[in-house]
């Protein structure tokens, strides 16, 4: 019973979201990717369009992606302590 109810709920949400997004679809007029595909070689001297976009047109994306990686690793270091860190923390709290 509970499984059928949850399946119906998921199906309803899926249908509603699909219908609403299809009704309100807007065509984005100035197509950015056409400009990028035609001009990336003159603009950035890269022969690989992905590299041109990542390192020139969308540089902010790449910068903050690197920041996200650093944040994730800092969080990981906080939650997975080493044996020496645990010892150091105990001594620190004793003082």
């Amino acid at each position: 019973m509970r499984m059928i109810a949850s399946a119906l709920l998921v199906l309803t949400v899926f249908v509603v979201v699909t219908v609403v997004t299809n009704r309100n679809r807007v065509e984005l007029e100035p197509l950015m990717y056409e400009y990028m595909i035609h001009n990336f070689e003159e603009d950035t001297h890269a022969r690989n369009a992905v590299a041109a976009i990542l390192l020139n047109y969308r540089m902010y994306d790449t910068m903050f992606e690197a920041l996200i990686l650093l944040t994730a690793i800092i969080g990981m270091k906080q939650f997975l302590p080493r044996e020496s860190d645990i010892q150091a923390g105990k001594e620190h709290s004793r003082e």
């Binding site: 990686l69 690793i73 270091k77």
Partner: peptide
């Protein structure tokens, strides 16, 4: 400029993922 940025990002990602994997593999918790 493109090559420089690639090298910087490559070293950052490589060391970052390496630290993550090693920390996880050698995790000695309570």
């Amino acid at each position: 400029y493109l090559t420089t940025m690639d090298v910087l990002i490559g070293v950052q990602v490589g060391f970052g993922l390496g630290v993550a994997v090693l920390r996880f593999a050698f995790f000695q918790g309570v």
